[in-house]
Computed example of a mutant assay.
Amino acid sequence: MKQWYQELFSNYAEKYESECYTHGTQGEVNFIEKELNYNKNAKILDIGCGTGRHSIELTKRGYSVVGMDLSESMLNKARENAENEGLKLDLRQADARNLLFEEEFDLVIMICEGGFSLMETDEMNFQILENAAKALKKNGKLIFTTLNGLFPLFHSVKDFINSNSENQVNMDNNFDLMTFRDHNTMEIEGDDGEIMVLDCNERYYVPSEITWLLKSLNFTKIEIFGCKLGEFSRKDSLTTEDYEMLVVGEL
């Protein structure tokens, strides 16, 4: 049986790019470039690359990027987008829980819940972090965003999600404080015009959890910041107002 994220992203590539959270690419890549010290020789892995927005922008700026995603539909859109830009992009269909890369990349990115936090068990989410770490060279860096567990402690997740997207309507919502998982039923229109009814299950993390997980994977430096759309910055301290957190880990 397909998981909700597989069903969604098999039929959402076109509408995905109209979502507000996909419109901050330039500023997000500015941050990524700065974290790389503008080293054009750096090799980058984009896990959960989706329709390729970060991979394409980084390639345009002269970096070597491998983009991977579970969804062939999203990858097809990424290929189309790259072709429209006159770019050749290394895009691969793969499951982030089963990657085979070992010490190949200077940087791994997972932006906008690119796999991590969407999985149905904590063990599966950890597998994604583990594979990201394995893919990094010594002294490599991991940059990712994930759902901030501090947010639903102080806010209504239901109210936030309902007001955050014009394309979706939540019918039912239940954030479990024991597991930090949000279970909600979402109705959303796919690219084919049909309504999908999805039973979603997303994991929120608190900073101490992320720090512990990355330390267990031998990251020696772990920094967590607030996450503002298109304006990633080390100056933003994480607060309860941040729906996502921005994580930078170094091996």
Rank of each mutant, 00 (worst) to 15 (best):
L198W: 14
T211N: 11
V197H: 11
K235A: 06
D199P: 02
T211P: 03
T211M: 05
D199F: 08
Y205W: 06
R234E: 15
L229C: 09
W212M: 14
R203H: 09
S237T: 12
D236H: 14
F225K: 03
T220E: 12
S233G: 09
L238P: 02
K221T: 03
I195P: 07
K221F: 02
S216H: 03
F225I: 06
C200P: 00
R234C: 11
E202I: 09
K215H: 14
R203P: 00
L198V: 13
C227T: 15
K215M: 09
E209M: 04
G193S: 06
C200K: 10
L214M: 07
S216Y: 02
G190V: 05
E209V: 02
L217M: 08
K228P: 02
E209F: 05
K235V: 03
T239N: 05
D199E: 11
Y204G: 01
I195D: 10
R234P: 09
L217V: 14
R203V: 07
F219T: 13
I224F: 01
N218W: 08
C227I: 15
G226A: 14
F225D: 07
M196A: 14
I195H: 06
K228E: 11
K235H: 08
L214G: 04
Y205D: 06
C200G: 02
L213G: 10
G193K: 08
S216M: 07
S233A: 11
P207A: 07
D192K: 10
L238Y: 08
L214R: 04
L213F: 15
V197E: 12
Y204S: 03
E231H: 13
E209Q: 11
F219W: 10
K228H: 12
F219E: 10
G190M: 08
F219I: 15
D191I: 11
D236P: 09
L214W: 06
F225T: 10
G226R: 14
D191Q: 04
G190R: 10
E223F: 00
L217T: 12
Y205P: 01
T211Q: 12
R234M: 13
L198G: 12
G226C: 13
N218Y: 09
L229A: 06
L214F: 04
D236C: 12
K215Q: 15
D192Y: 04
I210N: 02
I210L: 09
S216P: 00
E223Q: 01
D236Y: 15
